[in-house]
Nucleic acid binder design. Structure first.
Length: 347
DNA sequence: TCTGGGGTCCTAGGACCC
DNA sequence: TCTGGGGTCCTAGGACCC
């Protein structure tokens, strides 16, 4: 018996939920994103089915590009409530196992358990999810969260894979450092400049060099990750959101200050109603503006009178924060967003 | 073919106080 | 009179993830 972590990762989750309620779509290229109209600009792919991915359709590319790459694809609007409900079903299924469960977003979870046969557990989990919800998942088995997460990548789609400290370097060493969980484009660029290309390069790199370029925290974390070391604990406490935000990209840029202010006020009220409805108190209000140049500053204000549940105060604060922006001359605005930071005491 | 939306965490730097 | 250093609060931005 020893401590194992399983990472459960649902396959093409959003597309899979859509296919589940429209079985006639199974086997076809399905693309979900925006309002589902690929002729409209400024909308991107949320998830593509594996059939659509074969045409080069990936998350994040414009719907128009997806339509060009795969004209026969079925385009569907994003339906977050349906995905939330499907996710809750999956998590409820996982919670029935004698494990510690950490929900990790809509379509992922970590399971921690003391067991002598983690692969058998993985088989049971995958079967239970499929039988209980109709959704297929990959299960990664590891000795920590990092190895479990990467094991799940090997297992995708729909499989089971084990990765531990003992097998890490043989499986991962030759891969580009960019494939490491937590290493994004910026870090990759800096690593490349240091001559560190693979995960093995990073694992063998001089720690002083890493901390010099990435800071003591990130530098140490990078090296540990490259060596396959990660968290072994599962946080089972229910998640309490630190913030909630809402943003809108306009089909056409806004060019007058009054329209921008009106949009900010509307977002602030809608968002405020949501968080207050959830019994939360707002500590800060932030506003984000994306100009046509894609320059995207954010400004934030702490509410001086303390955490509030007053919708009018939230709206006023958002408009006050908006005043910090230079909107002179009708600089074209393509997006505005409002974020509320939430008090973390008991609501 | 111009680039969504919703999050978290970390760091740097200025203000201010002692 | 020409000036150190620590601590904390606050904001802005960077980076990454799903």
């Amino acid at each position: 018996m020893s401590w194992w972590l399983l990472h459960v990762d649902l396959d093409q989750f959003i597309a899979a939920v859509e296919i589940l309620r429209r079985p006639e779509l199974r086997g076809r290229p399905v693309v979900v994103g925006g309002d589902g109209d690929p002729t409209r600009a400024r909308q991107v792919v949320a998830t593509a089915s594996y059939e659509a991915r074969a045409f080069g359709v990936r998350s994040g590319i414009p719907l128009r590009v997806a339509a060009r790459r795969c004209p026969e694809a079925v385009f569907l609007p994003s339906d977050p409530p349906a995905y939330r409900a499907a996710s809750a079903d999956v998590m409820a299924t996982l919670a029935r196992f004698p494990v510690q469960l950490q929900v990790y977003g809509w379509d992922e979870a970590f399971l921690g358990t003391e067991t002598g046969d983690p692969m058998a557990l993985a088989v049971d989990v995958r079967r239970a999810v499929l039988d209980g919800t109709g959704l297929s998942c990959a299960v990664g088995v590891g000795d920590n969260k990092l190895t479990a997460k990467h094991a799940a990548r090997f297992a995708k789609p729909g499989g089971i894979h084990q990765l531990t400290a003992a097998t890490w370097m043989a499986a991962m060493g030759a891969k580009p450092a960019a494939e490491l969980w937590g290493v994004g484009p910026k870090t990759t660029k800096k690593l490349t400049a240091l001559g560190l290309h693979t995960i093995a390069d990073l694992a063998g790199a001089d720690l002083a060099t890493l901390t010099e370029h990435f800071g003591a925290n990130a530098g140490g974390w990078l090296q540990l990750s490259a060596r396959g070391t990660g968290e072994t604990t599962v946080d089972t406490t229910p998640w309490i959101a630190r913030s909630r935000s809402r943003e809108t990209t306009f089909a056409a840029d806004l060019t007058d200050r009054a329209s921008v202010a009106q949009q900010v006020a509307a977002l602030a009220r809608a968002l405020g109603a949501d968080v207050i409805g959830d019994g939360r108190r707002v500590t800060h209000v932030a506003v984000k503006v994306r100009f046509s140049s894609f320059y995207t500053p954010t400004r934030v204000m702490k509410l001086r009178a303390g955490p509030t549940t007053d919708l009018d105060e939230i709206e006023r604060a958002a408009l006050t924060v908006l005043d910090k922006f230079d909107l002179d001359g009708g600089r074209p605005v393509r997006l505005v967003g409002v974020r509320t930071d939430l008090a973390m005491e008991d609501p």
